[in-house]
Design a protein around this nucleic acid. Structure first.
Lengths: 246, 246
DNA sequence: CGCTGCATTGAAATATCTCAATCAATGTGG
DNA sequence: CCACATTGATTGAGATATTTCAATGCAGCG
């Protein structure tokens, strides 16, 4: 089941068996893409959308100096650029972080899908609004928190979202982000991100992994505190009532 | 015509005469709300959405100290909380800046509307995605620009969006924002916003109005340069092809 | 007149950036 | 197997940006 993680932990029971199968059948192809590959460039005309089956991707804008600002990180179960379906054009780039598995949906096919299953249109709309809610939280994160809080908040968000799709055990956060990626997502320099990580380590909140991939969360409560993290914006299970299409 | 500014300058020709009239007929009531009033609180269960006929509103998150971070400013022609239609609950607060005129749409009524006119659903989806695009740009603005750039960028965004709905003449930007509002939207202290405005004035980019609120834009090109502003993310006229529902 | 809300200024404290360098792990070619 | 390049993490020190605290100015208003 390729799309089993879609909205998992949020709208787990949202899709009927029929809808779920229809969605699955609408997959055009499944592809593997290596790490650090830009898949969609800003401004391109788009006729397909990607659903992230497994792995991590990043959506980013660029400043005039070529520096990136990440606008969101996508994890398994996310649509990466579903908004290109109504909009037909992206205002940002999309790239892989580690190696990923993607399901490709042709827009043409999506039209047929939601024509046959109107509730799916509503659910996809909801899914893009979830992205918007995360964007708002990032605005908050960048606008109101210092470097320490920003990184803590990001770690908490990743932990919570990975939990939703059964990929976080409460301790080992298996993400392929480098310190520079945290920096790009947090609006700080890579060097300052490094110092901030040291601080978080020294305070006993996180620890590096021996193998240097991912990190260990030691004190999640404290991370949530200094990151002012409250996961409500992720509209987790039980916090949501999806409206029904007419 | 209450909804005449909806997506103006973007999807000017998107609505057929029939759809336009149906939308207009779906208005439950039109209300006036005084300045500085919080209309929707985070977490509330919602069964209606507001369309901003005239005036300015703000959407904001709050940190643990009670300080606000604005996540977006709404101008005439915007839906303020249309995303509450699929989501039923907001993750942020919504308040008026100056006095506003609002059209109220019951969600129940919106269901009927888009049931009868499926393209309107797609257009509303698009409208919420436009908000998301603006959120992303704000993430960029806060993550990559310094105080001067952030304020310049915000001024440019307001100018462009007001232009879209025929409310900016190229010089006098008639917005009811205080310096503290710019600060809350820019992730800086009100005092630093003040110093930044002085800087922009001294550089001849803007000027205060003697009698009115709002400000005069003297050098828009330079503002766009230091704000690294490129309005593409607003999906203005000619930059968009709306996909057609099945 | 004395409020009140907003804009303004100065000065010291803090946060963050930039530049320059080092270190550790990994991979590659000879 | 070693020499070397590369990548990411780390550290120090000085420069810059921003905050905080404390105070003043200024206009409208009951």
């Amino acid at each position: 089941m390729i799309t089993k993680d879609f909205l998992c932990g949020r709208l787990r029971d949202a899709l009927t068996e029929t809808e779920s199968q229809a969605l699955e059948a609408a997959v055009h192809e499944v592809i593997e893409v290596p790490a650090r590959t830009t898949l969609v460039k800003r401004g391109e005309k788009i006729d397909k959308s990607y659903y992230l089956v497994d792995g991590f991707m990043i959506r980013y804008l660029q400043d005039r100096g070529g520096y990136r600002q990440s606008a969101g990180i996508q994890v398994a179960g996310d649509w990466v650029d579903l908004h290109s379906f109504p909009m037909k054009r992206l205002d940002h780039d999309v790239a892989t972080l580690g190696p990923v598995t993607l399901a490709v949906f042709k827009h043409e096919q999506l039209e047929k899908l939601i024509g046959a299953h109107p509730r799916l249109a509503r659910i996809m709309w909801f899914s893009t609004l979830l992205d918007a809610a995360m964007h708002r939280e990032w605005v908050f994160r960048l606008g109101r928190l210092n470097a320490e809080g920003r990184i803590a908040h990001l770690i908490c968000e990743l932990a919570r979202r990975l939990e939703f799709v059964g990929r976080f055990d409460g301790e080992y956060l298996d993400v392929p982000l480098h310190q520079a990626d945290y920096a790009e997502a947090s609006g700080i320099s890579a060097i300052h991100a490094n110092r901030t990580f040291r601080l978080l380590r020294e305070r006993g909140l996180i620890a590096n992994r021996e193998d240097h991939v991912g990190l260990t969360i030691l004190d999640r409560a404290e991370l949530e505190k200094i990151g002012e993290f409250d996961g409500d914006y992720l509209y987790g299970e039980g916090q949501l009532e999806l409206s029904e299409p007419y």
